[in-house]
Design a protein around this nucleic acid. Structure first.
Length: 391
RNA sequence: GGCGACGUAGCCAAGUGGUUAAGGCAGGGGUUUGCAAAACCCUGAUCGCGGGUUCGAAUCCCGCCGUCGCCUCCA
């Protein structure tokens, strides 16, 4: 095995870098389950599914962890609004999410940990951050003291004002009187009326957003993980908060390689639950096929934002049908055949997961007169891109 | 600040390692013409700057400078 793997863009260095060799620990931020998953979610998780498949195809051992933040402001808010039990709502939405990801052909993560199952791990980190004087307790809540970490925000790499502005748009409460600095983020929040709570050294309460990912990532993948991924909207404050919590906790590098999937827009705005401008995965699959949707998603490079207008449908229906016609009956290639035809495909994948180019290569091979080329195309498409080519 | 493009003659612009770097417009000179116009002929580049790789760089790599675009409520 080579010492270095494929080239992947690293959000923290802003450069395309070779992935370190050896076993890969991959942590991908999962969903907060309070609403139906849309095409933007599907894009992110299909991208990381392809990454997992690709690395395993190269012979790398990958441990894929994708969490679910099942206790969070949004879940409680939605449950409250609809008069439902927060746990029941979360379980239901999460089950729906997983079902749709499976329908799309995504492999199950090796571990799918829930925030609510990791209170001891979360509290242990919070305790040590207080001991190290980078966090402070105030009236049963605990906050991370951003001024104590001069490197805070190095992933986002923006000014203090910009950080505060973005954080405020994404769940930060700058006016919280218990905070020393408006940018400080909550590690543990004391129980409010009617909210679920867990016992802690600071009284009953629940974890803040961010800390659950540090706890679960380190529990399952160790103090330094190979790849941490998620949607690009998680760069700040979520991922920078994770870095701050984890590295102040361990004293060592938290993540080698940060990977972020670009946002899918819908008309003028980012597709989002709160704006309601969503294109649903379920409907798109029903209107076409899992392969067609997957091809549609992967025909966009993962770092390139793109637009899915409402009612635009799936433009890759014809491509999916064409590939299915030429590959459905193809058998398995021999090792020699696969080796002979995989070059351009693997080159594309090694070039920062250039799935549009990889798909073009599958299409080219599928049109070949050589049965062996078609067999190779089918194997690559199935094993690396997660397509089925089912008739 | 970040990301992505791009910087080739006055202007627009081709060119993605290999003879003297296309072409168009404008400008200058000329032929033709009673004059003018039109047409035709002639005329122009240390390829943003500085390094590097190479036998060889507009072309590839690094760093600057400059221009433009994007940066949209937890995926």
């Amino acid at each position: 095995m080579t010492a270095f793997g494929p080239l992947l863009y690293n959000s923290v260095s802003h450069k395309v870098e070779p992935l370190p060799g050896g076993d890969v620990g991959l942590y991908v931020c999962g969903v907060t389950p309070y609403d139906t998953s849309h095409l933007g979610h599907a894009f992110t998780y299909v991208v990381f599914d392809v990454l997992v498949r690709y690395l395993r195809f190269l012979g790398r051992r990958v441990t894929y962890v994708q969490n679910v933040t099942d206790i969070d402001d949004d879940v409680l808010l939605r449950a409250n609004k609809t008069g439902r039990d927060w746990k029941e709502l979360g379980d239901e939405e999460y089950a729906g999410f997983r079902q749709q990801m499976s329908r799309l052909g995504n492999l199950d993560p090796d571990v799918a940990p829930r925030a609510t199952d990791h209170m001891p791990e979360i509290q242990q980190i919070v305790e040590r951050l207080i001991d190290k004087d980078v966090a402070y307790e105030n009236k049963h809540s605990v906050y991370f003291d951003v001024k104590k970490d001069p490197k805070f925000g190095r992933l986002f790499n923006h000014s203090y004002d910009s950080m505060l502005q973005i954080a405020n748009e994404r769940g930060n409460f700058p006016a919280d009187p218990l905070k020393r600095d408006p940018l400080d983020f909550v590690l543990w929040q004391g129980q409010k009326d009617g909210e679920p709570a867990w016992d802690s050294p600071w009284g009953p309460g629940r974890p803040g957003w961010h800390i659950e990912c540090s706890a679960m990532a380190m529990k399952y993948l160790g103090e330094t993980i190979t790849i941490h991924g998620g949607g690009e909207d998680l760069v700040f404050p979520h991922h920078d908060a994770e870095i701050a919590q984890s590295e102040n906790y361990t004293g060592v590098l938290f993540v080698h390689h940060w990977l972020h999937a670009a946002m899918v827009y819908c008309g003028e705005h980012k597709m989002s639950k709160s704006l309601g401008n969503m294109v649903f995965v379920r409907e798109l699959i029903d209107d076409s096929s899992p392969d067609a949707v997957r091809l549609h998603l992967l025909s966009h490079h993962y770092r390139e934002p793109w637009d899915q207008p409402l009612d635009a449908g799936v433009p890759t229906v014809e491509l999916a049908a064409k590939l299915s016609r030429s590959l459905a009956d193809a058998g398995d290639p021999s090792d020699a055949e696969l080796e002979r035809y995989r070059g351009a495909f693997l080159d594309a994948m090694a070039n920062d997961l250039d799935t549009p180019a990889a798909i073009a290569e599958i299409e080219r091979l599928s049109g070949s007169e050589e049965p062996a080329a078609r067999r190779a195309a089918k194997a690559l498409g199935q094993r690396v891109l997660g397509l089925t080519f089912a008739a």
